[in-house]
Amino acid sequence: MATDRRASWLKGVLDLLVLGCLTDGESYGYEIAKRLDEAGLGQIRGGTLYPVLNRLETAGLVEAEYRAAERGPGRRYYRLTAEGRHGLSEQAAAWDEFHATTRAVLGSPTKGTML
């Protein structure tokens, strides 16, 4: 049950997290997944991550470029567009508002035990 709920939360916010990973500059799929894993969000597999990246690219929130490397594998690099940066800022604010509302209803853990 706890796993299901956490998965639902992540599903709802994964596109924002991916956009968030690009605020410091361009990145590629493996690096984005690694960063999310290191942040404690768990291992995001390719079958989950790439559909999100594709949707963001189709919506014009990110742009991508495949670059062949002289040594090692070629990679598809993603970067935020101006529209993506604006969307992220707007949606992050909406998320903060939602979080604050949820937090207010749930109350602090101490308050919860007193009810």
Partner: peptide, 29 residues
């Protein structure tokens, strides 16, 4: 893994890996 490959099965010493083609061609996949 850095090239986007993930294990998807093994049989003895034979290991299989998969990756979404989006790693290379994005939404065209």
């Amino acid at each position: 893994a850095p090239e986007g490959w993930e294990p998807c099965g093994h049989w003895g010493h034979i290991a299989y890996y998969k990756r979404p083609l989006s790693v290379l061609v994005g939404p065209d996949a």
